[in-house]
Each structure stands twice: as structure tokens, then as C-alpha cells.
Design a protein around this nucleic acid. Structure first.
Lengths: 140, 140
DNA sequence: CAGACTAAGTTCTGTTTTGATACTTACTTT
DNA sequence: AAAGTAAGTATCAAAACAGAACTTAGTCTG
């Protein structure tokens, strides 16, 4: 099983990306995920467990008396944000029936962000058509 | 159902992204998809139909005598590549057990690409932590 | 201090989706 | 004439999903 196959076995379903995106938006508690996403409780349980096991989220106690836990993104989970942002943006541009209600902006200045590829040798930004896949010679 | 939910209803499963990625890699025919991905034929049939119906791929005849068709990405399908690249790269960095066999490079110069967000006002590249979602006032 | 409430799940049950294997159809090649 | 090829379809068991109700442990309200 290749890396991308393992990646999709983890995040490739209708809910996992939505759960991660909710976490990005500041949702951290079980019932809040349920309410925000309309996800069924058993499925949410399974997804959260999978994400915790994979190290994308962690289950942290936020109160002890009745022990309660919330779910927070780890750096590994946060690192998935370019993929999620790309998906959201593609959706807004290609799948929306109504104008998007939220814009993603550069926090310091409020300008809508652009996403792209960068070549540090040429110091240029470029699009998908200038990508090539090459076999990596640096193998053990 | 929100835009992102509709987006994931379309591409959020274990196979659809893999099919699109195979198409990026130059695979276009039914049996080649099967062999390359190890996907079951009934599932491939369903995925290709869904992708054609959604306008991400098109079914084009490549020979007439026994009528044969192949599947090619449309611009709408190609537009999904930033998301696919982001997923592949996240996988390579976070899910790989062996070093990746393929590097994605800037075609003109061969340098490995970087992916990021860009603010055209500040003219800077930035990472996920500098993103904010703001309600869009420009509604009808 | 009884009753209702809360958060984070679990149980149960029926419906969809998968995944594997085999079969079909219409040609082409040996 | 027999075998091969490409693009599917058919069948069926196993797994995943979805919804509703139930559980558990503790807290708040009258």
C-alpha cells in the first residue's frame, strides 16, 4: 500500500476532513462537533479515535470533576491545512450554488489568500500545469 | 448541505482522489486504472461515472471500430490538483514508511516545489497559522 | 434531596457501500 | 477457429454508515 493510499485510508471519507476543518474553526468538543457537522455520534466516535490514533488530534481533559475531554489538532493535524484549504477553495470555485459565506484571509492584513506552488530556485509562483513528477534517485 | 460537504460527497472517499491522481500521471483507460490502482471494476465504473457527471473528467472515444473510450481530466478536474498535491505531500511527510519514490518538481528547472499561501497585498508567503476565516459581507 | 440537565459516549438495528470473482459483448489477432 | 483485448455488468458476502434511544457520572434547581 503506497503512502497516498495510506493517507486516503485515513482521511479519505466523507467526514474526517470535515471534522478536521471544524477543529480548525475552533470546535473541540464532542457535542459541538455533532451539532456543527450533523455527524452521527457513533461515526464521530470512530473518526475521533482514528484521528487520535494516527496522531492528528489529541484528546485532552478540560475539566476533572466529571472528567471531560476535548479534541485538539496536533502539529501533524495542523499540517494538513493546505490540503483542506485547497479543497475548500476548489469547492467554492467549482461546487458552490450560492456565494461562499466565509473568505479565508491573511490574518495580519485581511487580504483574501491565494494558494500556489513556489519554486525557490526560480523564485516564481506557478500553477499545476508546470508540475512534473520525477523518480527520486536518492534511494537507499 | 454546504459547499464543502458537497465537495466531499464527490471526492471524499478512498478512491476518487486516487483516480484523479492516476489521470494526472497520464493514465486514461479503464483497465489501466484497474491495474495501476488495484481498484475493483465495479467501483471504478461508479467513480468514473460520478466524475464525468460532475464534470471533472470526460469520456472521449479514442477508437471507433470496437468503440473504446478513455477518461481525461477537464479543466475543472485539473483545478483540483493543488488539493491533491497538498495531500500527497502531507502523506510523504507524515505517513510514509519508506522515502518517497517520486518528487514533484517545477517542470522548467527541476527544483522540488513548495506549496504555500500567498498574500498579494503584503507580497509574502505564509503558513496555515496565519489564516483566518472571515464572514463575507458581500452577500446579495 | 428529588428531578432535571449535561457531556461524552455506547447499543441496537436496518440500510448502503465495498470488494472479489466471474461473466458478457464486440471486436481483433494468430 | 481459437485466443486475446477493452470496457464494462452481475452476483453476493462483508464492512461501513445513519438514526434513535440508552448509559454513566456528576452538577444544578426548587
Amino acid at each position: 500500500m503506497s503512502t497516498i493510499e495510506r493517507t486516503l485510508a485515513l482521511v479519505g471519507d466523507r467526514w474526517t476532513i470535515l471534522v478536521l476543518r471544524a477543529a480548525f474553526r475552533g470546535i473541540h468538543r464532542f457535542d459541538d462537533f455533532c451539532a456543527d457537522l450533523g455527524i452521527g455520534r457513533p461515526i464521530l466516535t470512530a473518526r475521533l479515535r482514528k484521528l487520535v490514533a494516527a496522531g492528528l488530534m489529541e484528546r485532552v481533559p478540560y475539566q476533572h470533576h466529571p472528567p471531560r475531554y476535548e479534541y485538539r489538532l496536533t502539529p501533524k493535524g495542523t499540517a494538513l491545512s493546505p490540503a483542506i484549504v485547497a479543497l475548500v477553495r476548489w469547492g467554492d470555485e467549482n461546487m458552490s450554488t450560492t456565494p461562499p459565506t466565509t473568505r479565508l484571509v491573511h490574518a495580519p492584513c485581511g487580504t483574501e489568500l491565494e494558494q500556489g506552488f513556489w519554486c525557490k530556485t526560480c523564485a516564481v509562483r506557478f500553477g499545476p500545469t508546470a508540475i512534473r513528477g520525477v523518480p527520486d534517485a536518492a534511494q537507499a
